[in-house]
């Protein structure tokens, strides 16, 4: 029961993240959206790993690796957004809706 609940929550978080990615062009919002998608996938994965007898350690290790990978990508993305704002005065990509 709880596992299905967690898995479906994970799936819904992925959906939320996808919506944020497509509908919220401010780059900091998009970085948050990427993290939502990633964490939703991991929650789904964690629930799937708990279905058998005991908790499978391999997915847990993969998820920890994935969290560190997401942090690395977020760090570079955040740096690029600041550099973009410094050079162009906006946190939106050129030719995307949302220019103020």
């Amino acid at each position: 029961m709880s596992l299905t609940l967690f898995a479906l929550t994970g799936a819904a978080l992925v959906g939320l993240g996808v919506y944020g990615l497509l509908a919220r062009p401010h780059m900091l919002r998009r970085i948050i959206a990427f993290n939502l998608i990633g964490s939703g996938l991991f929650l789904f994965f964690g629930a799937a790993a708990a279905r058998g007898t005991g908790l499978d350690p391999i997915p847990q290790a993969l998820i920890i690796t994935g969290i560190v990978v997401a942090l690395s990508a977020s760090a570079l993305a955040v740096g690029l957004v600041v550099a973009l704002a410094r050079s162009s005065g906006t946190a939106y990509l050129p030719d995307e809706e949302g220019r103020l």
Partner: peptide, 25 residues
């Protein structure tokens, strides 16, 4: 550069998002 343009519902994005979530579900 921290201000955001007003947000509004983006229907195509919502359809894609619901589709992906439903697929995983």
């Amino acid at each position: 550069a921290s201000q955001e343009v007003p947000l509004h519902l983006n229907l195509p994005a919502a359809v894609v998002a619901v589709g992906i979530a439903a697929g995983l579900g």
